[in-house]
């Protein structure tokens, strides 16, 4: 098997707070192959974003710290790199786009200056060369009149436009991996569709891999080859998109699945998962999902299930997988 582009092994990220230690990501392993799209889904606070940030080593520290694990990118452990080496990787080889396009651009500079900055930092372009490259990348993200837009300040743009600019910035130096942290959450549904389409197209064109973080199963289903479902800092299920939707294995995935509102069931109540997300400072023993699970047995309360292959190519962290 060829070497994966990114391999995360047993990652554990903790936040040391005044009143205890919060484990945001616990024993997480995943691999991303070249030009594939991996979706990470899960509810708020389950560690999706922290996983993305720790790949770029951008977890705010203190209080956050990677307690354990390896993050191998092109065979090299990112956790062992110096800050200077990481700065060369960020934006050049691994890029990230954020949830909040409204505030992710610096209000004091024009859009053109901000994108050009990427070229000048990483590729050493001259002022003029950077301007040309900026114009090209803006065309690539389908901005109608790039010259005009480059002279605009962020407050003059709509949310969708700003997200395009953020994407342009992230893709400026042709990264190998793009981490998209809920890039469409703050946008209208129609703009969402446009941005997703754009990401899909650009990804094919520059052949990069993508980690798509979202809490929207529909969006992920459309975009991703494989999906990892996270709960309370760990991956509970990892499978090909079609398989995951056809036959979810983990009870949490099944619960998520049932909770998607559908037109056929419009007179029924929404089938929610009982209870709420566990306290990450003091997680339940055994399987973290057991207090909310519909098939909890004794073993679930005492022993932590590991992510294992249950059926061919399908991983789940559960003693009783399947419907």
């Amino acid at each position: 098997m060829e070497r994966p582009l990114l391999e995360v092994k047993n990652l554990k990220v903790q936040f040391k707070l005044k009143h205890g230690t919060l484990t945001a990501v616990d024993n997480l392993s995943l691999i991303i192959r070249e030009s594939e799209t991996l979706g990470i889904v899960g509810e708020t606070g389950c560690g999706k974003s922290v996983t993305g940030l720790s790949i770029l080593r951008l977890v705010p520290s203190p209080p956050g710290q990677v307690a354990y694990g390896e993050i191998l990118f092109e065979g090299e452990d990112l956790l062992r790199k110096s800050e200077g080496e990481m700065q060369k990787i960020r934006g050049r080889k691994i890029s990230m786009i954020f949830q909040e396009p409204m505030t992710s651009l610096n209000p004091s500079f024009t859009v053109g200056e901000q994108i050009a900055e990427c070229y000048r930092i990483h590729l050493g372009h001259s002022r003029k060369g950077a301007r040309e490259s900026t114009e090209n990348i803006l065309k690539a993200v389908r901005i109608p009149s790039p010259k005009f837009l480059m002279a605009c300040y962020p407050y003059e743009l709509s949310g969708g436009m700003r997200q395009r600019v953020m994407i342009a910035m992230a893709l400026a130096c042709g990264p190998k991996l793009l981490i998209a942290d809920e890039p469409t959450t703050a946008l209208d549904v129609t703009i969402q569709a446009e941005i997703l389409e754009l990401l899909e197209e650009l990804q094919k064109r520059i052949k990069m891999a993508m980690i798509f973080i979202s809490h929207n199963l529909g969006v992920v289903a459309r975009l991703c080859n494989r999906i990892a479902v996270m709960y309370a800092g760990s991956i509970v299920e990892l499978a090909e998109t079609s398989a995951l939707f056809a036959h979810p294995l983990h009870p949490y995935t099944i619960g998520l699945h049932n909770a998607i509102p559908s037109r056929a069931l419009r007179n029924e109540q929404l089938r929610v998962i009982p209870g709420s997300v566990c306290d990450l400072m003091d997680p339940p023993s055994g399987c973290k999902f057991h207090p909310r699970c519909f098939k909890t047995k004794e073993i679930c309360k005492t022993k932590v299930p590991h992510l294992e292959e249950k059926i061919s190519e399908r991983l789940a962290a559960c003693y009783f997988p399947g419907e």
Partner: peptide, 27 residues
Amino acid sequence: KEYVEAARMTGESEFQILFFQILPNCI
């Protein structure tokens, strides 16, 4: 603010972020 995070993402050094991203907003 998020733009600081975004600048970090593009690989700017802490010095660049403080003096060329943050300070212009404190004028």
